[in-house]
Computed example of a mutant assay.
Amino acid sequence: MRFGQCDYISVVFLCKSILLLLNAANFVAIVILSRGNCGLSGCITRYLISMNVTDLLVIITAVILNRISGIYFPGSFLSITPLCSLSIALTYAARVSSVWLTVMFTFDRFVAICCQKLKIKYCTEKTAAVVIGTVCVLGCLTNIPWYFIHEPIYVVDNVPWYCRLKDIRYTSLFWTAYDWFDRLLTPCAPFLLILLFNALTVRHILAASRARRRLRTDKGRENQTDPEMESRRKSIISLFTISGSFILLWMTYVIQFLHVRITDDYNIKSFSDPKFILQESGNMLQLLSSCTNTFIYAAIQKKFREELKNALHCPMKHITEIIIPRK
């Protein structure tokens, strides 16, 4: 089965629910975060902007260039094999970059909370820019092979059309190894790293909280508000919500991959085949993971909500003034 083939229900759900509602939200989040009025450090802001940009690229490449063009605009220039292969490679590159930026954001917060000495040198805007650039470059380089594994379904007037996987994809030792490498790179290794960093962060915070509580008790301040602990609590909520949503939404994809490799059964009989339903559900949920961060920010960041309200209020105010001019 070629990449991007799915039934009508899956396409409608993806296009209506994800693209129309959430793709615009990612763009709005990029604009709001770029203004730098959300009360976040420059380091965090760069990570969040880069995560939203790569998430937006995932939706553009995976949904617009791959699924929508294939279903609603068959035979367009995007269906020419070189462009089809390029869009698939770009989809994988954007996905890997998005996932590993989430990992690096988690690691950055781990350093900021647990490693005070390293924090001064590592948690800076310059380091964040270097890390983001490195992740994106490596994400593109490691997914170049996907461009060369596809062949045309048919050729008309010397023009190759559409993409399907070459038979060597299932017989070559190199491609078998590369397929395992790709799945370990995204999302198996990120799963383990995010869980590890979060576990270490929780352990450190619990220990620091107990020590700080004892200190405040000794000084008779146990009933007073602690700004430091409140700041840590908000950071942890943000970190755990972002990384937790990533793990939950990628879980089905991982289960589907492990099931196929353990059973060694790649055949899909029809759209009602449970293997096909599991595969498309995993694809749908991992695409959804590229759209959730904006809603997470809106739920837990007060200043982000305020900026979002201002961004929505200003255009509406101007429109109202045009429609109903002041007397």
Score class of each variant (00 low, 15 high):
171 T>W: 02
171 T>A: 07
173 L>D: 07
175 W>L: 06
175 W>F: 13
175 W>S: 04
176 T>D: 08
176 T>I: 03
177 A>L: 08
179 D>I: 00
179 D>L: 09
181 F>L: 10
181 F>I: 02
182 D>M: 03
182 D>A: 15
183 R>D: 09
183 R>N: 11
185 L>N: 14
185 L>C: 05
185 L>Q: 03
189 A>E: 02
190 P>F: 08
192 L>H: 06
193 L>W: 06
195 L>G: 13
195 L>S: 12
196 L>T: 12
197 F>S: 07
198 N>K: 01
199 A>H: 11
200 L>W: 05
201 T>S: 13
201 T>N: 11
204 H>I: 02
204 H>G: 04
205 I>F: 05
205 I>H: 06
205 I>V: 12
207 A>V: 13
208 A>F: 08
209 S>H: 13
210 R>N: 10
210 R>L: 05
211 A>G: 03
211 A>R: 09
213 R>D: 14
213 R>L: 11
213 R>Y: 08
214 R>N: 10
214 R>G: 03
217 T>I: 12
218 D>S: 13
219 K>H: 10
220 G>S: 00
220 G>Q: 00
221 R>S: 04
222 E>M: 01
223 N>T: 14
223 N>S: 14
226 D>N: 11
228 E>Q: 05
232 R>Y: 15
233 R>W: 07
236 I>Y: 11
236 I>H: 09
236 I>N: 11
238 S>C: 08
238 S>V: 07
240 F>H: 11
241 T>S: 15
246 F>I: 03
246 F>R: 07
247 I>V: 15
248 L>P: 04
248 L>G: 06
249 L>P: 07
250 W>C: 04
251 M>W: 00
251 M>A: 10
251 M>Y: 06
252 T>P: 05
254 V>K: 01
255 I>T: 06
256 Q>N: 10
258 L>F: 12
258 L>S: 09
258 L>Q: 06
260 V>H: 00
260 V>C: 04
260 V>P: 00
261 R>W: 01
265 D>Y: 14
265 D>S: 15
265 D>Q: 15
269 K>D: 10
270 S>N: 13
271 F>W: 15
273 D>Q: 09
274 P>T: 01
274 P>W: 06
274 P>S: 11
274 P>D: 09
276 F>H: 15
276 F>T: 05
276 F>E: 06
279 Q>L: 12
279 Q>K: 13
279 Q>I: 03
280 E>A: 10
281 S>L: 13
282 G>Q: 01
283 N>K: 08
283 N>E: 09
284 M>K: 01
285 L>M: 14
285 L>T: 05
286 Q>F: 07
286 Q>K: 09
288 L>A: 04
288 L>H: 02
289 S>K: 01
289 S>Q: 10
289 S>M: 02
290 S>I: 02
292 T>A: 14
292 T>K: 02
293 N>G: 11
293 N>S: 10
294 T>S: 11
297 Y>C: 13
297 Y>S: 06
298 A>L: 11
299 A>I: 07
299 A>Y: 10
303 K>W: 00
303 K>G: 04
303 K>D: 13
303 K>R: 14
304 F>G: 04
304 F>Y: 15
307 E>A: 09
307 E>R: 03
309 K>M: 06
